[in-house]
Design a protein around this nucleic acid. Structure first.
Lengths: 264, 264
DNA sequence: CTTTGAATCTCGTAT
DNA sequence: ATACGAGGTTCAAAG
């Protein structure tokens, strides 16, 4: 069981003591507070007073969230030193990161609520499907999905210009560089493929090298650049490949999320 | 004042009611709970049981944080529908996003603590400085910092291969492509500059085109590649440019963070 | 240590 | 709406 402490609308001294002890104890600390924030390091920022959600994790990660959106407005991925002090009616939380040198300072003018939990345990495995690696693995095992007669030479081949997802040889002995994308491919994907193709050409002078972009879709600008560079596009059905891959080597024998939703 | 409600180690029914009402009320909801998580949408993932921090924001953003690190393990940037239900001893929070279609399901087996705050107000302006755009703007206004006699032709010039930060002409009529970096430049910055220079050469056959990487520092690998590509490097003092830019158009008249730290 | 590329990237902005 | 690039990107893998 995880011991939980909390404090509601405390005065300066009580709030300071609570946060200070919780941080020192390496609890997971969550606070809702009116505060201002300053940051200086790789960049620099200032945020005036407002109501925010503050999170200090046991590993020293610090997050400052505004009441909307996914992204924290300020943060520290991990900090070397976190201190809490009371000054002039403010509770000041300061978090310093060593490398790179970064400082985050939260000045709390009013602490609405704070919770501290000690000894949380989370050792579960996080399993991701439908990522680019899974799709590229499957395509490397089944290159015929891209084109009949392809023979895969390498997966994740290191080139001077980066890593090609798949390098194969086609029926006519030409190299085929395949760049796999899980989502709509934009200019960046085409440039990446182009770099890899050029890199392979440079390393194998005289060899014929084709480049194929395998993606569920591509922006029209990307398609235009692709064809002007003499590269090719193959549409792939990501969901279908995912189903095939799952059938081939099932990773977990549990009902699908959609089934789960239907049941519950 | 923001009304705050909380519940500690509630039973299934009490915990369910608390979360359900808080979500319906569009409170900021924070819960510490033992739970498992499933996600399906653009990607797909499964996370077994463990202690997590759950956040539901008034705008429908949902975050699931493990006890370490900056990134949420699962999330929903904004959801159309969030529901809370009680089933077979679990509290089930389900968040559905419309576009793209994505579903996030959190199955809570044990609720350690939950807080709900209503009516948070955060209207402060977030001021960032020292970003790449500001530095490039300043250099575009003051190209003499890079080299005497430069005449800026364009800022953010669209090229076939991307956007060059600055394109200028030097005293001898040669084009100068300038790539600005706010932090230590790595290989990617050099490759980017190289692509832009090649792009400009292609569009202006016969024209002489130089390429300058303007950054506070560069890795030695980057410098090596740079010189082998016939490109140039100019060290810039970001902090100094920031001071100059601020003097030119002051955004805020507050003491520096370092001063603040010294004082407190 | 650096490099490299993915990401449910998110977010802003221009078209 | 879509596309594109920046980000204090973070993160993990690989050299």
């Amino acid at each position: 069981m995880a011991p939980v402490r909390h404090v509601a609308s405390p005065g300066l001294e009580e709030g300071y003591r609570f946060l200070n002890e919780a941080v020192a104890r390496r609890d997971l600390v969550v606070a809702v507070a009116r505060c201002s924030v300053e940051y200086e390091g790789r960049g620099a920022s200032r945020l005036g007073e407002g109501d925010r959600l503050l999170i200090v994790k046991p590993d020293g990660a610090v997050l400052v969230h505004r009441p909307t959106g996914y992204s924290p407005v300020n943060w520290q991925p991990d900090s070397h030193v976190i201190t809490v002090e009371a000054h002039n009616g403010f509770i000041v939380l300061r978090s310093v990161r060593k490398r790179p040198r970064e400082v985050l300072v939260v000045r709390i003018s009013r602490l609405y609520f704070a919770v501290a939990i000690h000894g949380l345990v989370d050792e579960a495995e996080f399993i991701e499907y439908l990522d680019e690696g899974e799709i590229a693995d499957y395509l490397a095992r089944h290159p015929e999905v891209i084109e009949e007669g392809l023979r895969v030479v390498r997966r994740e081949r290191p080139l001077e210009s980066g890593y090609a997802d798949i390098v194969a040889v086609d029926r006519e002995g030409r190299y085929v560089v395949i760049e796999v994308k899980r989502v709509t491919a934009g200019m960046e994907a085409v440039k990446q493929l182009h770099r890899y193709v050029e890199g392979l050409r440079k390393n194998n002078p005289g060899a014929k090298v084709r480049g194929i972009l395998a993606a569920p879709a591509a922006t029209k600008e990307a398609l235009s650049l692709l064809s002007s560079l003499g590269l090719e596009y193959r549409r792939i059905d990501v969901a279908k490949l995912h189903r095939e891959a799952k059938r081939e080597k099932p990773r977990s024998r549990v009902a699908s999320l959609l089934d789960f939703i239907k049941r519950s």
